[in-house]
């Protein structure tokens, strides 16, 4: 299975988007892992560190930042109250894009979709609802497949980052309705935008859920 990051690189190449990767950012974290467990100090430390690095590596906010996991984007976009005064000012200058924004607004307009899929299904993660990007997710589906379904019973998969690894019963119960619905018919692809949610939905449905980056990479021409 090819990794998400490879697809991201391919898409940027095809879309002729200049891609910057720095070592600092590649060892950073949005802090959700600490905040969801209620570790305030660790969370505050982490987001402050991350915003500092993002500000520095994005050339003081002039380069848009793309996150490849929607739940992390949502956490980062809401970290302002936990930042120091300087970091708050820096944060305000950052342009943070979720993977859905990036694909819908930057990538697809620059790509040639040469071989759209037949029928795919999405699992919209909770953050899609909170960020209000369901419309953009649908537009990606519209561009990349003849039919892109969003299940009626799509809901929170209960993975909650890593909680589902410790309480598998929670994830199993949470995904049952949606995976039953998805398994009513065959799809040529199963996609989402957060790795752990993809794992939860894959476990539940028996199909391989992948990042939408993978979908976009596969349907676009060089």
């Amino acid at each position: 299975m090819e990794d998400t990051y490879v697809s991201f690189g391919n898409i940027c190449k095809k879309a002729k988007i200049e891609l910057v990767v720095t070592n600092g950012i590649s060892t950073s974290c949005c802090g959700q892992i600490f905040s969801s467990k209620g570790f305030a100090d660790a969370h505050h430390y982490t987001v402050n560190q991350t915003i500092e690095k993002l500000f520095r590596d994005s050339n003081n906010g002039s380069i848009p930042i793309v996150l490849d996991v929607t739940s992390c984007t949502q956490t980062l976009l809401n970290c302002r109250p936990y930042l120091s005064e300087t970091n708050q000012q820096h944060f305000d200058q950052l342009k943070i894009l979720d993977i859905i924004d990036f694909v819908a607004d930057m990538a697809i307009p620059r790509l040639t979709i040469s071989q759209p899929k037949d029928k795919v299904v999405f699992h919209p993660v909770c953050s899609v609802h909170k960020l209000g990007t369901m419309g953009k997710l649908k537009s990606i589906g519209f561009a990349c497949a003849k039919q892109a379904d969003i299940p009626v019973f799509a809901g929170c998969c209960g993975m909650a980052g890593d909680r589902g690894f410790y309480y598998p019963g929670l994830t199993e119960a949470a995904t049952k309705r949606e995976s039953n619905e998805v398994n009513q018919q065959p799809y040529s692809g199963y996609y989402s935008t957060s790795k752990t949610c993809e794992i939860a939905m894959s476990e539940a449905s028996g199909h391989d859920y992948q990042s939408i980056l993978k979908l976009v990479d596969e349907v676009s021409a060089d």
Partner: peptide, 15 residues
């Protein structure tokens, strides 16, 4: 890429 756009990639730690 000398394209019209440029982005900084933040691959989330879970990825």
């Amino acid at each position: 890429n000398e394209g019209s756009a440029k982005v900084l990639y933040f691959s989330a730690c879970i990825n």
